[in-house]
Computed example of a mutant assay.
Amino acid sequence: MSELPGIALDDWHARGLAMDFRGHTIRYWVAGAEDAEPLLLIHGFPTASWDWHYLWAPLAERYRVIACDMLGFGYSAKPRGHDYSLLEQADLQQALLAHLGEQRPLHVLAHDYGDSVAQEMIARHQDGRVKLASCVFLNGGLFPETHHPVRVQKLLLGPLGPLVGRLFSRRKLAQSFARIFGPRSQASDAELDALWQLVKYNNGPAVMHRLIRYMPERRQQRERWVTAMQATTVPMRVIDGAFDPISGAHMVARYRELIADADTVLLDDIGHYPQLEAPQQVLEHYLQFVEGTRSDDA
């Protein structure tokens, strides 16, 4: 049970705002003082920005926190037949910032699928197309060679992907999450109910086989993204649930091999969703990191 109170899904939904992105309605959330430093939260697959609900209020005390449900996720539009891509989701993040008039250097906190979007934003930072102040990654497939997808993800990528998506259910979500959460930090029934509501909203399972194409896209972009991460001066940290079979301790080991002076935190017995499983620890390690980057700048 989290020490942080969190936000009930209905309350979260009620706080959402809407914007248009290329003809599609995107739900987004903003909190905190307008003059506070901006912090962009980027969620993972197959869930949505509610993943951050435990951290939302504590972070909003210090930052102008910004998050959206990406195209195809949560309460945002889920167009059928759409060619979803990580590059387009990075375009969406930039469109959201433009919609809010936010032009200051940006802190980023990302998870899972969102890690790949954040990697693209680091590459764009290197190209001068966006300005980042820092980037923190939670469990995600930063390197395709260390990403171990669960069975349903593999099936979604295959020829039966559309059928697998349509047959996806709360029971299958619970089965998958039971394997990827830590042994003592399993999702409650109430959390699973909420996460399933977000997945199934607007018939989300019908587009899951299209969203999953991020996995080959990661392979296509790997060299560009890793090169940008190796070259950047943007402060980076990984906060990772070590128990995670998808992108746990084995991914962090690879990160330490590839990134000079790697700043990494491993959370023992925590799985793939540290912001839900151990939000207090994530908050403490996140704030410690950002405070450290400020003292380095002083």
Rank of each mutant, 00 (worst) to 15 (best):
S49I: 01
L132M: 10
D91K: 12
I212Q: 06
L39E: 00
Q126S: 13
R213L: 10
I42Y: 11
V282R: 04
L195W: 08
W225M: 09
V252S: 10
D112A: 14
A48Q: 10
L55D: 00
E277M: 02
A57D: 15
A14C: 12
G241N: 03
V199E: 00
I7G: 09
A133Q: 12
Q119T: 08
L192A: 06
S49C: 08
L173I: 06
V282M: 07
A174T: 07
V164D: 03
A253F: 10
S188N: 08
S176P: 00
R219S: 13
D69W: 03
R64P: 03
R64L: 06
I212S: 03
T25E: 15
E257T: 10
T293N: 01
W50S: 04
F21H: 10
Q175K: 14
Y201E: 13
R15L: 14
Q119E: 12
K131Y: 10
D296F: 09
P149F: 07
A48W: 07
G81Y: 02
V199G: 00
L156H: 03
E277V: 04
V108K: 03
D35E: 15
V130H: 03
E61L: 10
H148D: 14
L71A: 04
N203P: 00
W12P: 01
D193V: 07
F21S: 06
V207F: 06
I246Y: 00
A14N: 14
D10H: 13
L266I: 09
E284Y: 05
R254F: 12
A57F: 10
D35L: 12
R104I: 08
V252G: 04
Q220P: 02
A178G: 06
D263A: 11
